[in-house]
């Protein structure tokens, strides 16, 4: 039952954007990727959703500032398994230009397992689409295994 649903559901991943204290550069590019017909991520079956409980793929941007840390982790835990996390920009991985800032203690990947990384500051929309395509592969593998990204 789960297997047969899995093959159907991987055709339409729903995307959730999570801003972990980003400068909004990556968020603008993510909005561009989805909303502008020129890039149009909906061709891959993706759809941006407003609620974390509906999400399959999470796009995370930002270095995880102390102010949003607990809120981000709470929202992240609301996303059902198996979720695939995509780090957009260099901030979630290393902190980027905000590394060693007094507003963030450590990079986001100490808290959240990043499945796909799209480096850039910000990455161009095509690179984000490439990252989402990679996340789709990861998600399909997860659905076949029935494994969780974080437990």
């Amino acid at each position: 039952m789960f297997k047969s649903l899995g093959s159907l559901v991987t055709r339409s991943p729903w995307i959730y954007r999570l801003n972990a204290g980003s400068c909004n550069g990556c968020d603008v590019e993510m909005a561009t990727t989805a909303l502008i017909p020129r890039y149009d991520v909906e061709r891959l079956g993706c759809k941006y959703c407003g609620s974390p409980r509906h999400a399959d793929i999470v796009l995370i941007s930002g270095p995880l500032t102390l102010r949003v840390r607990d809120k981000v982790l709470r929202v992240f835990d609301e996303i059902p398994h198996p979720k695939v996390t995509v780090a957009v920009g260099v901030c979630p991985v290393t902190g980027g230009a905000f590394r060693d800032s007094y507003t963030c203690d450590t990079a986001l990947d100490q808290y959240i397992n990043l499945d796909v990384i799209v480096p850039g500051c910000p990455p161009r929309p095509q690179a984000i689409i490439e990252g989402i395509a990679k996340a789709l592969e990861v998600w399909k593998e997860r659905m076949e295994e029935g494994a969780c990204s974080r437990s």
């Binding site: 990947d109 499945d115 796909v116 990384i117 990455p123 690179a127 990679k134």
Partner: peptide, 14 residues
Amino acid sequence: DWHLAHRGEDRFAV
């Protein structure tokens, strides 16, 4: 070359 998207486990190879 902007094709830098990679899996999380390959991060130290990029």
